[in-house]
Amino acid sequence: MIYLIIAIVLGIIMLVAAVIAVYNKDLKTAIIAAGVTSLFASVLYVLLAAPDVALTEASIGSGLTTLIFFYVYNKIRRNNAQE
């Protein structure tokens, strides 16, 4: 029962973060929100008894992807400033 409640709360947080990631005009906020979605997804995977998927999601989804998005964002901003 308690797991069900935690899973529902996690799902709601993921949905909110995903909507923010899609609709927010500020790219930095959107990137962070996408990372938060992955982070809570990885916690949810642990609850659903899939620890190996959770490991992948935590390190690639919320770690490396967020970092790569920030590098790309920085590069685009720099290129726009030059023009």
Binding site: P51, D52, L55, T56, S59, G63, L64, L67
Partner: peptide, 29 residues
């Protein structure tokens, strides 16, 4: 640890490799 114990505990080559890459990403940051 994750990829050496891949045949015993959850996780494996992909997961271990991703964790190692995130360590190097932290180092680069």
């Amino acid at each position: 640890y994750i990829f050496i114990n891949g045949h015993l505990t959850p996780g494996g080559g992909f997961q271990g490799g991703a964790v190692i890459a995130s360590a190097f990403a932290l180092l680069l940051l």
